[in-house]
């Protein structure tokens, strides 16, 4: 059984890169997000918002790749933030402790305000 590949879209804005995902974040999905995050960082973006509005399920392998992105962002004194998480994905991030290193916002508008205001 093959699930449809994760769809990822990058929106580069002034001082903020937003990555939109749609689908299952497994290992391939995580790798695709990492590739797009690298692209954003390559354009000089140090603040990346991952909008998971189209993602209802993740697995720990995919999240491990998100931890790699957090590590890279910390190395460049940047920041990875998340918005539009399902309650279960947010709970999982809390269980893992990701929220110590990545901010979580309810929606994109709140995130843009929060990240822009720093």
């Amino acid at each position: 059984m093959m699930t449809e590949a994760l769809k990822v879209r990058l929106d580069l804005r002034d001082g903020l890169a937003v990555i939109y995902t749609e689908g299952y974040i497994n290992n391939q999905g995580g790798e695709e997000i990492a590739r797009v995050a690298d692209e954003a960082m390559g354009h000089g973006h140090k603040v990346v918002l991952l909008n998971l509005v189209g993602t209802k399920i993740v697995n720990s392998i995919g999240i491990s790749i998100l931890i790699e992105i957090i590590e890279k962002m910390l190395e460049i004194e940047g920041k990875l933030a998340f918005c539009n998480l399902t309650p279960t994905i947010e709970k999982t991030f809390n269980i893992m402790g990701l929220t110590q290193y990545a901010d979580i916002y309810a929606d994109e508008e709140t995130a843009v305000g929060g990240l822009g205001g720093e």
Binding site: S60, I61, S64, I67, E68, E71, M96, G97, Q100, Y101
Partner: peptide
Amino acid sequence: RIEEKLKANRKRGW
């Protein structure tokens, strides 16, 4: 533990 996984090569095991 997230603080250790951030520095580790292997980030899995959750």
